[in-house]
Every structure is written in C-alpha cells, then in structure tokens.
C-alpha cells in the first residue's frame, strides 16, 4: 500500500489525555478541518459512501460528488456481512458491495486513490469490529493509516472493550470516533468523550442508520418540515457540555436518520458541530444512473452544506 497519508502526524498512545491546547484532541486533518470551520463560523457536513457500492468506480464518483458539493469530512464504509447497527439502505449497500467481491485490499486501494486526488479532505473508515479484529488491530491500523485515512468509526465497539483497538489506532495517529446515544448516562458519556478523538458521534435517534423510531418516545419538534426528537436535542446539549477537557472542546457530530436540509438546520440550531448523512446517499447512489451519480450527489450535498452555513 502506498504511503499516501504518511506525512501527517505522530502521536503517543496517551495523546488524547496529555495535551491542553485546543488541538489536544487530535492533530489530524479532522481537527484542522473543525478549526477551519470554527474560524468561518460554519458547521461541518460529514457524508458517508459505501465503497464498492454499486461498484468501486461509482462509489469513487459519489465521493467526488460529495467533495465537489462541499462535504467537510468523508466517511468511507467497508461492508460487513452482519451490519447490526444499520438500517435497510446501508444493509443493501453492504450486501451489494460484498456480492461484487469487496475485500479490504480493494478498499485500501480505493481510499488511496481518493486520498491522492484530494490532499486535505479528512477521510474516516466506518466498518464493524470483526473486520479489524480479524486483521489484528495493529496491522489494520497501519494499513488504514498508510492508505491516507484519518480516523475510524466502529458502531459495535463499546468503550469497555476498546483498549487494544485504541492503542493500535493511537500508535498510527488515527482518530478513534466513538458513538454515544441519547440514553447514555453522564458518567459514561464522559468516558466516551475522553477516549474519542476527531469528533464525538452522537446518535440522533433510537434506531439503526436511516431509520427513525416512532416508538421510542421523546417529543418530536415539527418545526421547519423536520421531525427531530426532543431527546436528540437534549443529547446534543449534554454532549457539548461533556466533551470539554482542559478548555478544549471535542466537536460533536450528529448522525442517524438525517436526510434533508431541514433536519440539518434543526441539529445545527441545537448546537451540533457537524451533521452526518449516510443512508440518504446510499439511496441516491442506488437510484441514479452510474453516469449521474457524481452530479446528483454533488447537488444534494450542496443543499445540505448550505444548511450548515446560515446557522446560529
């Protein structure tokens, strides 16, 4: 694998605890991006593309469309056979990619290509624990870092089990982005914030990706054609209060079930530093002719990005 992103960083295993400056959370492209956004008084748009769906080439077109449309951070999905945190759209993208022979080697080649074409955009791998455990966390982390990727999200990795994974990621300077949920109690939220670097991923709904739960309770506020649960807004406020260390604040990104500019405005209004959109892109990619994917994705991204600008 080419060392497309080799030049960037070099941090210690305790990097997330030792610093006290504003970049103590991360010295990666992700941190620089959030600093840049803050300076522009703008919020971030994080977009997700399942690599290899519907093909390697088209998924790269989708990423190009995201970048052209103004996405600030790109999540690159690598499929797992049993994506239990994902709803139907990403399940379908996962099985589609696996059906076309997705392998981790191919994923790394795709990521390297994207990195070579885009020096500065932060790239984050999203997959499931078994994929990295199977490679060995240390070997996986160095391969991921060599491909020019900046951070990792594993939706089934609980902080309680994360020590060997986090140590491996730190050794390679990769950010570890953990998820928190509206029902995460205060003490645990602090632990999650302390071990997360890059940003904290707050799940907006009780449910899987792309799905909004009607049953799980919580008041829904219907303003602006969106339906954001009251508990989600509370969760963002709580996360923002918690994710503060030594005067520096870890950015809080909000994801799951966000699919429209109206949703984006709601979460941005509630104080989210970034919004994360995934399943909506899987749908656009699936429903567009391959030649239109880049254009359609970029148009959609531009609309979402605009909603992150005229915030508070």
């Amino acid at each position: 694998m080419q060392a497309a992103g080799k030049e960037k960083r070099g941090r210690t295993a305790e990097g997330h605890n030792s610093g006290n400056s504003s970049d103590s959370y991360s010295s990666s492209r992700i941190a620089s991006k959030f600093a840049e956004l803050r300076a522009r008084n703008e919020r971030g748009l994080v977009t997700y593309a399942m690599t290899g769906f519907p093909s390697d080439r088209v998924s790269v077109s989708a990423v190009s469309g995201m970048i052209r449309g103004g996405a600030d951070v790109i999540e690159l999905g690598f499929p797992f056979s049993d994506p239990l945190a994902d709803g139907p759209a990403i399940q379908e993208a996962s099985s589609g990619a696996l059906g076309r022979g997705a392998t981790f080697e191919r994923f790394l080649r795709t990521a390297s290509r994207i990195r070579r074409a885009n020096r500065d955009v932060p790239l984050v791998l999203m997959t499931y624990t078994n994929i990295l455990y199977n490679l060995g966390y240390d070997r996986a982390a160095s391969m991921i870092s060599d491909a020019g990727i900046d951070g990792i999200i594993l939706p089934d990795m609980a902080v309680d089990e994360s020590a060997p994974y986090v140590a491996a990621a730190r050794r390679c300077g990769l950010d570890t982005i953990f998820l928190a949920s509206p029902n995460t109690p205060a003490g645990r939220l602090r632990r999650i914030a302390n071990i997360s670097t890059g940003f904290l991923y707050m799940v907006a709904v009780y449910g899987t990706t792309g799905v909004r739960s009607a049953r799980a309770g919580g008041r829904a506020s219907k303003a602006g054609g969106s339906s954001v649960a009251g508990y989600a807004l509370d969760a963002i406020r709580r996360a923002k209060r918690t994710a503060v260390r030594s005067g520096a604040r870890l950015p809080v990104g909000v994801g799951f079930g966000i699919s429209s500019p109206a949703d984006v405005r709601q979460y941005v209004g509630a104080g989210a530093d970034a919004v994360i959109v995934g399943s909506a892109y899987a749908k656009i990619t699936k429903e567009s002719a391959p030649k239109d994917v880049e254009k359609n994705v970029s148009t959609f991204t531009r609309r979402l990005k605009a909603a992150t600008r005229n915030a508070s």
Binding site: L84, A85, T129, P155, D156, M157, A158, D160, E161, F178, L179, A180, S181, P182, N183, T184, P185, R188, I192, V203, Y206
Partner: peptide
C-alpha cells in the same frame, strides 16, 4: 465473551 454492542444497547 464481553460486550461488543452499539452504544444505545449499553443502558
């Protein structure tokens, strides 16, 4: 063993 689960299931 252990507990490798999405955060929403921890509580």
């Amino acid at each position: 063993g252990g507990r490798y689960i999405p955060e929403t299931l921890v509580p």
